[in-house]
Design a binder for these strands. Sequence first.
DNA 1: CGTGATCTTGAAGCGCTTCAACACAAGTGG
DNA 2: CCACTTGTGTTGAAGCGCTTCAAGATCACG
Lengths: 246, 246
Amino acid sequence: MPTVHGASAPLSNAPSRHAAHCSTCALQHYCLPQGLSSEDVNALQKVIVNARTIKRGETLFHVGDTFDTLYAVRSGSLKTVVSAANGNGREQVMGLHLGGDALGLEAFDTGLHACHAVALEDSSVCLIPHVHFERACRETSALQRRLLQLLSREIVRKSTQTLILGTLRADERVAALLLDLSARLKHRGYAGNEFNLRLTRDDMGSFLGITLETVSRTLSRFQAMGLIDANGKLIQILDFDGLRAI
Amino acid sequence: MPTVHGASAPLSNAPSRHAAHCSTCALQHYCLPQGLSSEDVNALQKVIVNARTIKRGETLFHVGDTFDTLYAVRSGSLKTVVSAANGNGREQVMGLHLGGDALGLEAFDTGLHACHAVALEDSSVCLIPHVHFERACRETSALQRRLLQLLSREIVRKSTQTLILGTLRADERVAALLLDLSARLKHRGYAGNEFNLRLTRDDMGSFLGITLETVSRTLSRFQAMGLIDANGKLIQILDFDGLRAI
DNA sequence: CGTGATCTTGAAGCGCTTCAACACAAGTGG
DNA sequence: CCACTTGTGTTGAAGCGCTTCAAGATCACG
């Protein structure tokens, strides 16, 4: 098994080339303000109340919590989890949210959160009271457009996940997860070929609709094929085209 | 096999107790105006340009089409279909849209439609230019809230579908589809225990992430168990609790 | 009424799950 | 500090649920 060098990109920290000029919240730099004028960004800034930190394993919000504020991941990473209506206690990881991602968009529907959000590492999030935000969106069309885009993107993302669970074999699913994660990190300014996966094998399996054993076996096989170098949660992608061809 | 009586609820026609007072578009009665004052509904009415009819099998919009208008199903039903990025030509049915459902919400993200929409029967849809709609949302907070709710509901719906594909066995998936369809029809004013399913077994399988043979076998088993009475696309639910207990 | 699409059912095979045992790392308390 | 506990990861072997392949049956539509 190849050695793993210690210095790997964390899944979360703010990338340097996106250095924030607002120490309160990285929101302005990833998530909402793309395509906004500086004037519009000022309007946005007013509706962000403050930030909050959560420790690894802590829950940001539960299913059924009243929906007061939207969240945007400032640093760290969180998973969202839903339980099956069928009382069997079956749960599934529904999403992985990295720095800059929005959180809580599913709650506009009923006014209650429809999933749990759990921190995968010590993280911090921005708080955005949604009534303030909605008012700002009514005053600023660019901001409105941005909110609609965020919601729409979440729909597309969930569709992609449904497609993965509906059509791909286990090894294709694992490859898709690794490539997706790589692309998202690259988009945030990382190299993208090496990262510290905060999900457990169990979480990965739940997310992909397979068992943790299958995840583990698949990663081992990818390693034997020379596609990746995996050492526990530390994963390095060696052959992108090979992974894509799975 | 029990006989099937001819008069069954179509999947689509406008239910009588929701009789539209606007002959142009049923949109006002199902989809957008819930919780809006009559004044607000007037504001909404202005942004609806007109309606369009599509024949069974025709496509309302394709992947990659520029996003000009939102749609709301006026009568009939449509399926949305996406293709896997992996060029294998694998396709999956992503959604089933009945009267009153919105269509095209996924396109706010990129400005291009991310799926195909195909009519399952002769149908008609309302056309809502989204720029007009967005302006109206900026002027009417209740309308804005309604749009956010629609987008959010779509996220929740897709999450539910992901959960189904990720955690349920084949028979549980089929049962979930039947119960979901029944609930949606009941919500539209039908009895909900008998309906004409417009999806083929192939479409159902694609939607549920299983093969058409498994769908067929499962329905046959449900019939043998006395849970349903299925005759081709005509399906009657005999034992709701039994289905829920699968 | 015929032809192609759709549906049903059977039989064989495979991919994944399940169960089990063990290795390993991290965190905790004596 | 080490022993202990707990959570996590790896690997093997057996079994099952679903897919695949195949052959008819039935339906729908021009």
